[in-house]
């Protein structure tokens, strides 16, 4: 009798973890369904939103149970999505008992993140690279790289102190724009726009936007809207941050 609940919990937990790490709605729904089918549950149903999961099993029977999860929008972790996908495949291929699946899920959820310096370094390289791609010269690229490094340090600090997402975005974009004005004001022969463009790339909502498109494509309109709104608001906050800084700079007599 407890088995139904056990299976449902496992399936929902796996779905929860996938959703939290940025899996798209269709895949999460599909995975939860398949896991329940693989463990021979009948009469089950799942409804997934970009920030919640609703699932029930064996509704007509005595051991009926249902589960609701609230899953806040999180940051993307492609490795976890990939591993959870593999786990679901194993379960469907009947290679995995329930306790084994739990163990595997636990390992995935508590998988260590990369060391922080790698994230800092990658943000720097990404910023510098994109700056050059959008027409910066080598010097500007290097400056963008430096600002990118500092940006990630700031973001890590915010993460540690749990600063709200939008405050975080706003301050980060102000920070980046202000820093990019510095070398030009000091008289270095660089143009500031290419540097900012490179440095806001780690902030732009490419992921939310892409996920939103895919949700719409799979007819998950509500989730698509949630992600789209997320992307638009992110873009808006970046714009406000950048705009505010430029406005202040120009009112102080700076010329761009």
């Amino acid at each position: 009798m407890n088995e139904t609940r056990d299976i449902l919990t496992l399936a929902v937990e796996i779905g929860d973890a996938m959703l939290q790490n940025g899996g798209e709605i269709y895949r999460v729904e599909d995975t939860v369904m398949k896991i329940m089918a693989a463990y021979q549950l009948e009469d089950y149903d799942v409804y997934v939103l970009s920030n919640g999961i609703f699932a029930s099993a064996n509704e007509g029977k005595e051991d009926a149970c249902s589960m609701i999860r609230h899953v806040p929008l999180g940051s993307v972790n492609l490795l976890k999505i990939s591993k959870l996908n593999q786990l679901a495949r194993d379960i469907c291929a009947k290679k995995c008992t329930i306790p084994e699946a739990w163990e595997c899920l636990d390992a995935v959820i508590h998988h260590k993140k990369d060391p922080l310096w790698i994230r800092v370094l990658c943000t720097g390289i990404g910023s510098g690279g994109f700056a050059i791609l959008f027409g910066a010269n080598v010097l500007e690229g290097i400056i963008a790289l430096g600002i990118g490094l500092l940006l990630q340090l700031l973001m890590l600090w915010f993460e540690k102190h749990e600063v709200g997402r939008f405050a975080n975005l706003l301050i980060c974009s102000i920070f980046v724009t202000a820093l990019s004005l510095l070398p030009m004001s000091m008289g270095l022969p660089v143009s500031q726009d290419k540097i900012v463009i490179g440095c806001i790339m780690p902030l732009v909502p490419g992921i939310a936007f892409t996920t939103s498109i895919r949700d719409f494509y799979n007819s998950d309109y509500l989730s698509g809207l949630i992600h789209l709104l997320d992307a638009l608001l992110t873009a808006l906050f970046i714009s406000v941050g950048v705009g505010l800084t430029i406005y202040i700079y120009q009112s102080m007599g700076g010329v761009l």
Partner: peptide, 22 residues
């Protein structure tokens, strides 16, 4: 998702957002 989310980034209009605001 693994490839698409990373690969789309060069096309994302970061520059467009900046110039629009500017």
């Amino acid at each position: 998702t693994v490839y698409l989310l990373s690969g789309i980034f060069p096309l994302v209009p970061g520059a467009g957002i900046y110039y629009t605001v500017f």
